[in-house]
Each structure stands twice: as C-alpha cells, then as structure tokens.
Amino acid sequence: MAGQCKKIMYLHRRAPYGTVYAQEGLEVVLIGAAFDQDVCMAFVDDGVYQLKAGQDTSAVGMKNFSPAWRALGDYDVTRLYVERESLDERGLREEDLMPLRYEDENDDWAEKSSIVIVDRKEIGRLIDAQDVVFNF
C-alpha cells in the first residue's frame, strides 16, 4: 500500500438525520484522512442538507453531528463539491450552508472556502475521474 495514492470520492446523497448513512459516512471520511490519499467529497440530492447551517436536533433527540464538518479542513479534506441543481430543487442557496474553510498550504496558508458549487454535469465528470467512490 506504501506510495499508492488513489483518487477517492465520498458521495453523500441522503438527508442528515432520517437515516444513519450521513453520520456513519462522515466517520469513514475522518478515518480515511489518515491514509494520505487524493480525497474529495460530493453532496447531491438530499445530501446537500448535511451542510445546512444552523442544524438543531434537540426536538428529535438525535446527536447533532454537523459541527464535525468544520474539522474537515484540519483533516486535509478541502474539496467539497455541492451540486447546484440539488440546492436549487430544495430552495437552498450557498449562503444557507455552513461556511467551511481551510488554510491552503500552497498559497501562504491563505484561508479559502472548501465548498465548491458545481453543476450536475460536472459532478458526473468528477465521479468518472475517481478510482474509488464511497456512496453514503
């Protein structure tokens, strides 16, 4: 395994609390970060709700795991592609999402947004470019 660097995408498609896939999917991303691969994430369909700002789970008695998304930058997971059509279909805009940022070591540690809004066609192209797609 030494020296192998694969292109890995974590594709999140589901709403954050209706099922456990989003939460357990995030756990794979955080563990996977230790393996030093070429990692990105993509959020499509109801998966875009996972990044919504101001999540409050107190009424449903479930753990609000959304603060963990802010740690991704420290784990070198800095490319989070969000599908524009999925946002539009749900009446969401980029401003409705959590501001997730990272420090770019190749640009004098300038702070940049991890979130990149792309259209459906581009998501397809990105999926096609991966060696591995984890689907949660």
Binding site: M1, Q4, K6, V28, I31, G32, F35, Q37, N135
Partner: peptide, 20 residues
C-alpha cells in the same frame, strides 16, 4: 475491527464493490 480496514481495502483492491 476499525474503519481503517475499509479504507485499506479500497486502496489495496483493484475494485471495491458496494452492496446497498
């Protein structure tokens, strides 16, 4: 075992096939 075993399989294998 831990999730590292899943990520290792993804890196080591020619294909990772998901069922679900």
């Amino acid at each position: 075992s831990g999730l590292g075993q899943l990520v290792e399989a993804a890196i080591e294998c020619d294909r990772l096939v998901t069922f679900g």
